[in-house]
Measured scan of single mutants.
Amino acid sequence: MGFKLLSKLLVYLTASIMAIASPLAFSVDSSGEYPTVSEIPVGEVRLYQIADGVWSHIATQSFDGAVYPSNGLIVRDGDELLLIDTAWGAKNTAALLAEIEKQIGLPVTRAVSTHFHDDRVGGVDVLRAAGVATYASPSTRRLAEVEGNEIPTHSLEGLSSSGDAVRFGPVELFYPGAAHSTDNLIVYVPSASVLYGGCAIYELSRTSAGNVADADLAEWPTSIERIQQHYPEAQFVIPGHGLPGGLDLLKHTTNVVKAHTNRSVVE
């Protein structure tokens, strides 16, 4: 069995187990497998329904001669939608809004960016022009300005110390501490036991640490421990890039980060 097929099978099995364990909360999309990078042309966006009122959005972007996937989250909030992270750029984010209108038909009224990198804030200006209120932590807003990236308009308070959590509509926002970046936030959907790890969490097929220019490698494993301790009931975990899975993604990420750190020390 090929690795790609095995990865998709694991996603399907995880979703099936969740649907059985929580039949009222989960209505997993039966329309197909989780979209992969090879299936999404740059400039297009796919939506994948995880649970009743919960979707991931998947886009792709060219970077350094390669094409990478990027995940975000959409959560229903009454007759409105909360968006977590842009679709990595203005063109993708405009396509995301169009796809949401086509498939869901509810307005996106608020959006949260989970850290300051372009795959999370690139497209904020498109959201703002569409009347979406954009939010991020003060740290993310400051770092985005320093980096020359787009800056969300509103500040999220109460997320300055490791372990801080605040309720934001249908989700809980959690600051686990520094990891992929010093400002990275985690998003949890309690009604569906869905954990969105953003770039602080890796997919299972990833074996290298990737972009760690703004990471705190020493603190990252401790931050992941905080996530595990705060959300032990999480059933569906979405990484910032690639295929979702279960809580095993947290341990896998820790292993990859520690291996990278150990290699760096040896070198």
Rank of each mutant, 00 (worst) to 15 (best):
V132A: 07
F168E: 12
T14Y: 13
D216S: 10
V265Q: 12
N92G: 11
G131D: 06
L6Q: 03
P69E: 05
F174T: 06
T222S: 12
Y202D: 05
Y231K: 04
S205R: 08
V189K: 02
V11L: 12
A95W: 03
T261I: 02
D118G: 05
T36D: 14
P176G: 05
V256F: 13
Y196H: 03
I20N: 13
T140L: 14
N211I: 11
L81E: 01
P232E: 04
R206F: 13
T261F: 02
R206L: 10
G53H: 15
R142A: 13
K102R: 09
P138R: 11
G197E: 00
L250K: 01
T14G: 12
P138V: 13
Y175G: 00
G89F: 13
V146A: 09
L10M: 13
L217T: 03
D214S: 13
V189E: 08
T182H: 04
S181A: 07
K4M: 03
W55N: 02
A51S: 09
K8P: 05
D29P: 08
H180R: 00
L204D: 13
A179P: 00
P152I: 12
R120P: 01
D216R: 13
G123E: 00
A234G: 07
Q61W: 10
V37G: 05
G158E: 04
Q103P: 11
G210L: 13
A66N: 15
N255P: 08
T207K: 12
W220A: 10
T222R: 09
S38F: 10
L6P: 05
K102W: 09
L249V: 07
R206C: 13
L195C: 01
N262F: 14
A95N: 15
L217Q: 08
A200T: 05
S113H: 15
Y175Q: 03
S160C: 06
L6H: 12
A136R: 01
I151S: 10
L143V: 11
A98D: 02
L195A: 08
D118M: 03
V11E: 11
V54M: 14
S191K: 06
P190G: 06
V257T: 06
A19D: 15
V265K: 13
Q103L: 14
G123K: 01
V166D: 13
D85N: 08
V124W: 13
E147T: 11
D79S: 07
V132M: 15
E157K: 04
D125M: 06
G210N: 15
A51P: 03
V11I: 06
G72Q: 02
K258T: 06
M1L: 14
G105S: 14
F174A: 04
G177H: 00
Q229T: 02
L5D: 14
W220S: 04
E172W: 12
A136W: 10
L250C: 07
Y34S: 12
V67K: 14
A144F: 12
L81A: 10
I104G: 02
E145W: 09
G148N: 03
S223I: 14
Y34E: 12
